[in-house]
Design a protein around this nucleic acid. Structure first.
Length: 835
DNA sequence: ACGTGGCCACTTTTT
DNA sequence: GTGGCCACGT
């Protein structure tokens, strides 16, 4: 039996059509990775192609690694085939040739934080008021321009009259200048500069064209214009370009992905062979029917429909809840039930949601139920403060040209170098046209600094960095990091923080060291050189999903975006509410294409499920500190009711029954006034949050102790109301408010007349909305537990209360935890629950 | 030079 | 509910 017997006819066509342009439209779960890996095998084994001449491009390192492994399994040449992400491919090329563009080959890569810092400097220099035009906005515009391969010059030409765009054009130019000065590239530059290199150096391009004679691109629907151009250039000699993608799974428009790349592939390559893979090997027919029904509502897609030879399978499980809290509890308990009844193990379950913020409630439930889980994404590990600090030390040691890194750590931990000194050094560097670090090296030459204390401290810093550089010549990266932490007393600085925080940050540092060690080991195994630059580069290009290990047998929690390309036996789609998914942003957007992208995301989510799909919905949910009441997601309503298992209302009924509220706006205001949050005398001295009934709208001057603030945004999405205490509460104006204000022709100035004076001494027990904030504020009344009680902490687990003391502002509780040992904590923060 | 308190914005998704 | 930033005070 040959390698290819298990393939269906369409898949075989994909494998055997090796010459010329090929477009494979691969529906979700249609076995496209099998096709790609077998295609590589076929090229090598049957076509006599040298494995070295084959390139496969993916979007994540994880996908690249898996593909390599699978090729390796089949033909054993896995390592010699170039399988890599767009970004790592380009970085590898640039490391060899970017000097042709006037950069140094040991350039650094800037992440979004770094970009923001640079842009801040740019704005200062160009006197751009960042209140009017935010750094993020400018960076967004620049990023979009780069995705479209628009240079600063071209951008400037195209904007002519528009004042704001003109300023962006200037900022773009200045930003690039600054990056170059720092010998740095941002994410977009990695692609853009490679294209630039190929266009300006035909010899370099030809070199790579000769090398990559067969090119394959995975997840082609996610490519942007720059990436397409890159591929087009590389493939223009042999034209052996095979792209695989699914227009229905294009979910990265916000990142510049151009869906036209896949829709118009046949226009660019009229001789392209087009192959459709529609047979699905992943999911049950019920899941596929649901997915098909949803995606059918999009116009502007290539017509196709998934089918399977598997049976109908279980129906989808639709589970409505009153609150997000109950939703989370249900999901946790259901997973536990499946485990108990041996229906499925933890590792086969995944909970998917629209936004990272939704993971929190779920996590809390999982902790309560003792379910092992991993959250993918959220705040990237490498963007945590302490990790970035250590990396900045490494960057400074590796490449003194990275001003940003140097400035980040020059006074961390504190060594008495202040803003004034830094400014003087910078001025000198500017005047001499050298980097910040180079200026530091010649401190004695800086007239404004003289020979004072400041100069000595700067000198000490330089000596220390030089010492690390010397040391690096003969020690491992691990030793270097340890030495940096010790010499700088960084760890000591962290230990001075309060215990909980220190512990967490130290853990992150430990994890970083672990990553260094495993990097060194992996490199050693491959016989590759271990350099600091290589480590920093790898770190800059990791995605959250890259670190996920399927063998851990843990439930995975992640956004639907992160879940693309993955599959699970048991999938939970949580938070299926209009306003959450589709997000409020897309509902209110004037571009109808936005909702289509959101629908594709729903399609991706549904098609992750192999056996069971549970869709849940919460009537009330706390979002940004506000309770929102949302109707069921329109995408759920697009699923035919007969595919779902519970007593489902008919489609018609959706519009009137309890799952529906009359309109999105109205639904916000059914909340009665109530108070929640911490009592005033609790730690931190916060005032209670006021939730107000907005139906009593007034437009007069602010009344009583409600002081009105202006509307924050022109489109009146929210109005700030100062409660007369200190806390500003953000509320959303009623529909009436909008109408009325249109009539009187002004923006609502005050939308609240309700007067409620919270008495400072009166203890509040939160009237939490159906347990939305269960267990939050308990301090001043009674804690709900006393010395000797067994309590549960979200992080430390169970323990016994040893003593409770009245501190100046809060109760100080000492708990002996079974696992974590003794801890002293403030009651308001600890959120202990009696068990 | 450094710490603190108040004020604000943030939450859509990420290589 | 949180983190970043600025202004101010020591």
């Amino acid at each position: 039996m040959s390698l290819y017997d298990s393939l269906n006819e369409q898949q075989k066509k994909g494998v055997f059509t090796t010459q010329g342009p090929v477009l494979i439209l691969a529906g979700a779960g249609s076995g496209k990775t099998s096709v790609l890996t077998r295609r590589i095998a076929y090229l090598i084994d049957n076509m006599g192609v040298n494995s070295w001449n084959i390139m496969a491009i993916t979007f994540t390192n994880k996908a690249a690694g898996e593909m390599k492994e699978r090729v390796d399994d089949i033909v054993g040449y896995g390592e010699s085939v170039w399988v890599a992400t767009f970004h790592s491919t380009c970085v590898r090329i640039l490391r060899r040739h970017i000097d042709r563009l006037g950069y140094d080959t040991n350039f650094t890569i800037y992440d979004t934080d770094d970009q923001k810092s640079v842009m801040k400097e740019v704005c200062k220099k160009l006197e751009i008021d960042t209140k009017q035009l935010k750094e993020k906005t400018i960076l967004g515009a620049i990023s979009s321009a780069k995705d479209e391969l628009i240079s600063p010059l071209e951008y400037e030409m195209s904007v002519m009259g528009d004042f704001t765009k003109r300023r962006i054009a200037n900022a773009y130019k200045e930003y690039q200048t600054l990056l170059k000065k720092n010998n740095a590239l941002d994410f977009d530059d990695i692609i853009v500069k490679t294209v630039e290199l190929f266009k300006s150096c035909p010899d370099v391009l030809e070199n790579y064209q000769n090398r990559f004679q067969y090119i394959m691109v995975d997840e082609y629907q996610d490519t942007n214009t720059a990436q397409f151009e890159l591929i087009r250039l590389l493939a223009s000699k042999t034209r052996n370009l095979c792209v695989v993608g699914d227009d229905d799974q294009s979910i990265y428009k916000f990142r510049g992905a151009n869906i036209r790349n896949i829709l118009d592939f046949e226009k660019v390559y009229p001789d392209a062979t087009v192959i459709k893979l529609e047979q699905n090997y992943r999911s049950t027919q019920n899941v596929l029917d649901a997915a098909n029904a949803v995606i059918r509502n999009n116009i502007g897609r290539k017509d196709k429909s998934l089918w399977t030879e598997q049976g109908a399978g279980n129906r989808l499980h639709f589970r409505p809840f009153d609150t997000a809290y109950e939703e989370a509890e249900y999901i946790a308990s259901d997973i536990k039930r499946k485990k108990r009844q041996a229906e499925s193990d933890y590792g086969q379950c995944a909970v998917l949601y629209r936004t990272n913020a939704q993971s929190r409630l779920l996590e809390e439930s999982f902790i309560r139920e003792n379910i092992p889980y991993d959250v993918v994404g959220g705040v990237n590990f490498y963007s945590r403060k302490e990790v970035k600090d250590v990396l900045a030390y490494l960057k400074t040691i590796d490449n003194g040209k990275d001003d940003l890194a140097v400035k980040r750590i020059i006074n961390v931990p504190r060594r008495g170098i202040g803003a004034a000194s830094i400014l003087r050094v910078q001025e000198y560097a500017d005047s001499m046209d050298i980097s910040f670090y180079e200026a530091l090296q010649q401190v004695d030459q800086i007239p404004t600094l003289g020979k004072g204390k400041a100069a000595d401290k700067l000198k000490d810093f330089v000596t220390m960095i030089q010492m690390f550089r010397t040391k690096l010549q003969f020690c491992s990266l691990e030793e270097l990091i340890t030495d940096v932490l010790e010499t700088t007393q960084y760890v000591q600085m962290l230990e001075e923080l309060d215990r909980e925080e220190a512990e967490e940050r130290l853990q992150n540092i430990d994890e970083l060291i672990t990553k260094v060690v495993s990097f060194e080991m992996a490199r050693e195994e491959l016989g590759e050189e271990i350099t600091l630059s290589a480590f920093l580069e790898e770190v800059a290009l990791v995605a959250d999903i890259d670190g996920v290990d399927k063998d851990d047998n843990k439930v995975l929690l992640m956004t639907i975006h992160s879940a693309k390309g993955l599959e699970f036996s048991q999938v939970y789609l949580a938070g299926m509410e209009d306003g959450v998914f589709p997000s409020y942003m897309t509902i209110t957007s004037d571009d109808p294409m936005d909702i289509e992208e959101e629908r594709r995301l729903a399609y991706v989510g549904i098609t992750r499920a192999k056996d069971d799909l549970t869709i849940s919905y919460a009537k009330a949910r706390m979002l940004r500190g506000e309770t929102q009441y949302n109707p069921v997601s329109r995408f759920v309503k697009e699923i035919p009711p007969h595919l779902m298992d519970n007593k489902l209302p008919s489609i018609r009924k959706w519009d009137q029954d309890e799952y529906e509220t009359d309109s999105y706006e109205r639904s916000h205001f059914k909340a009665k006034p109530f108070q929640t949050g911490m009592p005033q005398n609790s730690f931190g001295g916060r005032t209670p949050q006021q939730r107000v009934q907005l139906n009593d709208t007034v437009f007069d001057k602010p009344k009583n102790n409600w002081e009105a603030a202006d509307t924050r945004r022109n489109n009146w999405e929210s109005v700030s109301v100062n409660t007369g205490y200190q806390k500003t509460t953000s509320v959303t104006p009623t529909k009436q408010a909008r109408d009325l204000s249109e009539i009187i022709g002004s923006r609502p100035k005050a939308v609240v007349k309700k007067k409620e004076t919270p008495s400072a001494n009166k203890p509040y027990i939160a009237k939490s909305l159906d347990g939305l904030s269960k267990g939050v504020p308990t301090t001043s009344g009674g804690l709900g537990y006393q010395a000797g009680d067994r309590v549960r902490h979200i992080k430390y687990g169970d323990g016994t209360v040893l003593k409770i003391e009245q501190d100046t502002r809060d109760y100080k509780v000492t708990v002996a935890f079974d696992e974590a040992g003794n801890k002293i904590m403030y009651a308001a923060f600890a959120k202990l629950r009696k068990i």
